[in-house]
Amino acid sequence: MEFLSQAVLLFKKDLLLELRRRESLLTMFFFGTLLLFVFHFSFDLAPDRIAEMAPALLWLAFLFTGTLGLAQLFEGERANHCLEALLLSPMDRGAFFVAKTCFNLVLMVLVEIVIIPLFWILFNLPNWELVPDLFLVTLLGTVGFCVLGTLFAAVTLKARARELLLPLILFPLMVPVILATIRCMEAILRNGELGDALPWLRLLVGFDVIFLTVGVLIFDWVIEF
C-alpha cells in the first residue's frame, strides 16, 4: 500500500539519522538514568514500599524523558526547509504522522529497555520474572504517549515557549494512559498477573486505537508550513 510504503520510508530516514548521530537517544538515556538517581535521593524508600511505588516512579521517569524526546522530534525537519519540502511532496500526511510516531516509539522503547532493568538493579527489587509483563504494559502506555505526543509536538511546532507548552497541553490528556498503565503494573507486581486490572488494559488499548486513528485522519490539518 502506498500509505505504508511512504510511512516506512520516512521512518527509515529518521532511524538512520538517529543511529548516525544518536543525539536524542543518548540524551534520553542519560536523563532517564539521572531521574532514577534523583528519585533515590528524594524518596526515602523502604524495600517493601519500593515495589508499590515502582510503577509510578517509572512512569514519571518515562513521561519526562519522553517529553524530552518529543521536543527534538521535528528538529530534523527544521533545517534547510525540509518540512516545506516534505509537505509539498505528494505524500500522505497521515503517513508522515505514523512514521514520526513509530520513530518516537522506537526511541522510547529503547530507553525503557534500559531503564526498567536499571531501576530493578538500583532499587534491589526481587521479582525479575515479572519484568517482561511489565514491559508489555509499558509498551501499550508508550504507544498512547507517542500518538498524542507526536500530534501535539507538530501542533506546537511554531508556538512560543514550545518546550513548556507541549507538556502543559499533553499531560492532562494523558491521564487515562497514566492511570491505566500504573494500575496494570501495580496489579502485575502484586498478583503476578492482571486479574482485576483487565478493564484498565482494555481502556489503554482503546485509547491507543482511538487516537492513532484520529491522529492519522487529523494530521492533514495539523502540520503546516
Binding site: 498524542l148 506546537t156 487515562p176 484498565w200 482511538i210
Partner: peptide, 22 residues
C-alpha cells in the same frame, strides 16, 4: 492548532471520565 486540541480534548473526556471514576 487550537481546533485540533479542541477536538482531541473532547474525544478524550469520556476516557478521562472513565479512568478517574474507576
Amino acid at each position: 492548532s487550537a481546533a485540533v486540541l479542541g477536538i482531541i480534548g473532547f474525544l478524550d473526556i469520556p476516557l478521562i471520565h472513565m479512568s478517574v471514576y474507576w
